[in-house]
Nucleic acid binder design. Structure first.
Lengths: 251, 251
DNA sequence: GTCAAGAAGATTGTTGACAATATTACAATA
DNA sequence: TATTGTAATATTGTCAACAATCTTCTTGAC
């Protein structure tokens, strides 16, 4: 049977725990394929499995001491999340999105975050959410100036999770969850400097104000801009990384 | 092996062929699970399988003369499309969306169609698309006044397909394709009267103008409004149907 | 040395059987 | 009669083996 993941105690926000984090109303006991998918997804977002790498069913099955059936299904789940691509009779490969594709994913997130935040702004029972948001955004402001961006990113993820759940649109939750998994890597990149994080805090504060005022138009506009800015920051960093890698390989 | 579907010759737009129609760059030879999924999806959109009905793996496997493995995978594919819901150890059930859920799906479609049409309006090589669109929209105007809405709906589907492909965002294509499959039924409902179809033609003509002018803002706004209107029309019809059913059962 | 053809090995796709769990039918009790 | 517990059945989950296909390595010709 499956060895439990070497993660922090339940409740802690473990990196790579995103599938569970964003999935709608997860049953208390995950199925075997889901457990395998969670374990594999950790390795993909953390880079243990490199982009482009081929994942062989038999190898995974042997490691987790299960048969290939559940592994196959786990890989299908990861395909749904966009973490692998499955080619007919050629198996699963860790996705290696081009910059254009990263752009595309952020575009979609921008639109759907806009919808999400508009829905919340226009919802009657948003009152209960506001105190929590205020608290989290305060935490955000604190951690913005830290040299390390880890805590900041965690809080952003938590905020997004809160809002996505609050919107109360199941399908939207599913789609945004899947897109979030695919873009964590890049979100981290985009928030790597204190300046970017300061900018991000301002966006969140604006959003909070719009939500408090029940201003759906503003909420949508700000949410969109926030994602598009984070996209631009991420792409900028990506290009910089790539340029450095290119220079190195040329030397 | 699998008996071929009793559909029209390839190329013809068969009802229920939607999975294939919207899937990105379908390989010429569908896998066995995909074939099964296509066959099952026909039955679901056509109502042969009633909403809420349970689909048993063994029964499907026996009918198509395959083992349960490919059937399982087919059902997972249909879950991805939102046509069934799979509960742990309880199998697959044809989804029976509430009116609230239908609303939610249309909301998402509205946003993403907005993104799609903005992308096209702002794309450099939209020129090639415009003549085709003009032609299809002309066809639309012709068939609007027909007593039967079938041809009109088909043309709308083709238009959406054209635009979705033209946007050139793979992930968007996937998501919109899946949402389209889920809402065909309701789109049909919303376009059931000539008045609604006339209104719809106007939207399309406005959209065409915005695309021609390269006006992304307008394209997005119009696309959104178009979907939201079709949503309202569909919901209205749904409620009417439901009221009639209720009255009947009370009698 | 490069390329093509073919054989050997590796990997995915499918199958049928068994195990674990859920559903149904039925009987006993309040 | 309604309800609860239990046995029988049905159904999903998992496994291991086989078939079909792809990949890689070797061999040979140019």
């Amino acid at each position: 049977m499956l060895v439990p993941a070497p993660t922090s105690p339940p409740g802690a926000t473990a990196p790579g725990d995103l599938l569970a984090q964003f999935s709608e109303s997860a049953p208390l006991t995950q199925s075997l394929p889901e457990q395998i998918a969670a374990r594999l997804s950790e390795r993909m977002v953390s880079g243990t499995y490199a982009p482009g790498q081929r994942i062989m069913e038999q190898a995974v099955a042997a490691e987790f001491e299960v048969s290939r059936g559940p592994v196959r299904e786990a890989l299908r789940l990861l395909e749904k999340e966009g973490l692998v691509i499955i080619l007919a009779r050629r198996g699963a490969q860790v996705t290696n999105p081009t910059i254009a594709e990263v752009n595309e994913i952020f575009d979609i997130r921008a639109m759907l975050n806009g919808l999400r935040d508009r829905m919340i702004a226009e919802s009657a029972q948003r009152e209960r959410l506001l105190p929590v948001l205020e608290q989290e955004i305060a935490k955000l402001a604190e951690s913005a100036t830290a040299p390390d961006g880890t805590q900041y990113v965690d809080t952003v993820l938590r905020l997004n999770q809160l809002l996505t759940q609050a919107a109360g649109n199941r399908r939207l939750q599913t789609i945004l969850g899947s897109l979030a998994v695919q873009t964590v890597r890049y979100t981290r990149l985009g928030l790597s400097t204190p300046e970017r994080r300061q900018q991000s805090v301002h966006h969140w504060q604006h959003l909070l104000r719009a939500l408090r005022n029940g201003d759906g138009d503003a909420a949508e506009r700000i949410a969109r801009q926030r994602v598009l800015d984070s996209r631009d920051a991420a792409i900028e960093q990506l290009l910089r990384q790539q340029a450095m890698a290119d220079a190195k390989s040329a030397a």
